[in-house]
Each structure stands twice: as structure tokens, then as C-alpha cells.
């Protein structure tokens, strides 16, 4: 308990020292054009919260990121499960999937603008595509890594294919699925913000590009700060979901290490 307190006090000191150093450097060396100042950022945050600017852009970004994330994860999960069980099909598709997987998805952004225009659906599809591959690859590996012994023992007990799927394949792939989901959180935000920077007039990505374009450094840093908060919130939600769906994993963490 005292350990936790000590760590937290040290964190607080570090944060305060960092903010003070930042403020001091910006004022003393007249750097606020490049790095803004914590006090300015704070003031801007209050202003944007007050006049509704923040809510307007934030909700657009949240909407796109979450829709893309959910669509991409569901599709990735389903295709991963199916291909994980259908060995021949998986072998046929393997090189194509790998080729597509290894392409930097960011490069797709202009193509998506071409196909879907600049409205919200383009960004949702873009994010969904990025998330799809991460979740798909992880689910697929999870399904392929299911213990054959466990499957055999249940088969001897007379298990049907559906029994195997619900009692073994899905729960054992879940660990992998969550690895994919956790990876997908920052990517869904990257996708959304990138989409908003290239083509739109709303969302945090637009706000970022717009403030930077008009040399409004405080605005840019404020937007960055909000993006960090958003990303941390998404991560937190995924972690809570993980603990709820995989209780045996937390218990595992709480155990003492044994060999």
C-alpha cells in the first residue's frame, strides 16, 4: 500500500516538474510558437469545452473510430474463425492475405477517398479495413493454435463440431483475439485521424491539421492532448472487456509465478 503511494507521489512530482519546465522554457526562451505552453493549452481546453468546439469534433472522431473498430473486429473475427477451421481454403488464400497484410494500410487512404469520397463512410470503411486485418490475423493464429489434445479428448466424449467451437476453439482463441483488439485501438485512431486530416471539415484530425496550418500551436497541442485521452479511454474499455470475458486470465496474473 505504501509502495503504491510512493510510486504515485513520484509520478506526481515528475509530472509537475515536466509541466513547470515546459512552461519555463517556453516563456524564458520565447519558444511558445513551437511548443506552446501548458497554461495556454489549459486555457484553450476550457474555451473549447465552453463553446462546444471540442464536443463537435470529438464526437465525430469517436463515432468514426468506434464504428470502424466494431465493423472491422466483427468481420475479422468471423473470417478468422472460418479460415482457421477451413484448412484448405486457408492454404489457398494464404499468400494473398499475407501480401495484403504486409502492405502499409495508410497507403490505402487516397484510394478510399477515390472510391468513397470524403464523407464519413469513407473513414469508417478505412478504419474497418485496418482493424479487420489485425483482428483477422490474430483470430486466425489463435484458432490454428488450439490444442489438438483438448479437441481429441472432447471428441472422444462425443462432442459435435459446434461443441468444439464453443467449448474449445473460441475460448482458447479469445486470448489472441484480444491481442488483436488491443493492437487495433491505436490503429483505429490513427486511421480515423488520418482520414480526417486528408479529407473533411470535422473531427479531431481536421482540428489538428487546421490549427497546425494556421500556426495555432496551442490549438494543435490541445488537440493532441485530447487525442491521447481518447486513446487511453479506448484502451481502458478494451482492458475491462478483457477482464470480464476472460476471468481466468486475471486470476492468472494474480498468481505467484511457478515453474
Amino acid at each position: 500500500m505504501t509502495d503504491v503511494l510512493k510510486i504515485n507521489v513520484m509520478r506526481l512530482i515528475l509530472a509537475v516538474a515536466f509541466l513547470w519546465g515546459w512552461e519555463y522554457a517556453a516563456t524564458a526562451y520565447k519558444l511558445s510558437f513551437y511548443i506552446s505552453r501548458p497554461s495556454e493549452i489549459y486555457a484553450r481546453l476550457l474555451l473549447w469545452v465552453g463553446d462546444g468546439t471540442l464536443a463537435k469534433h470529438l464526437f465525430v472522431t469517436i463515432y468514426v473510430a468506434i464504428s470502424g473498430f466494431v465493423l472491422g473486429s466483427i468481420a475479422g473475427l468471423l473470417v478468422g474463425l472460418v479460415l482457421g477451421r477451413a484448412k484448405t481454403l486457408a492454404r489457398v488464400l494464404d499468400p494473398f492475405l499475407m501480401a495484403f497484410y504486409s502492405m502499409p494500410k495508410v497507403a490505402l487512404a487516397p484510394v478510399f477517398v477515390l472510391w468513397f469520397g470524403v464523407d464519413t463512410s469513407m473513414k469508417v470503411i478505412f478504419v474497418a479495413t485496418v482493424v479487420f486485418f489485425l483482428v483477422f490475423i490474430n483470430t486466425y493464429s489463435g484458432v490454428r493454435n488450439v490444442s489438438r489434445e483438448q479437441l481429441t479428448i472432447l471428441r472422444l466424449m462425443g462432442a459435435s463440431e459446434l461443441n468444439l467451437l464453443t467449448k474449445i476453439v473460441f475460448p482458447s482463441a479469445l486470448v489472441w483475439v484480444f491481442a488483436g483488439l488491443r493492437l487495433s485501438v491505436p490503429y483505429s485512431l490513427i486511421g480515423t485521424i488520418l482520414g480526417e486530416m486528408t479529407a473533411t471539415n470535422k473531427g479531431l484530425g481536421y482540428l489538428l491539421a487546421n490549427t497546425a496550418g494556421t500556426f495555432d500551436t496551442a490549438g494543435t497541442f490541445t488537440t493532441l492532448f485530447v487525442i491521447i485521452l481518447l486513446s487511453m479511454t479506448f484502451n481502458g474499455v478494451v482492458r475491462v472487456l478483457e477482464h470480464v470475458l476472460m476471468p481466468w486470465r486475471i486470476e492468472h496474473d494474480a498468481e505467484e509465478a511457478t515453474i
Partner: peptide, 10 residues
């Protein structure tokens, strides 16, 4: 079997 092969998530 020689090793128990219980399902760890149950």
C-alpha cells in the same frame, strides 16, 4: 491421458 488436458478457461 498422462497429462490432464483440463480446459484452463473453465
Amino acid at each position: 491421458t498422462q497429462s490432464d488436458h483440463l480446459l484452463p478457461w473453465r
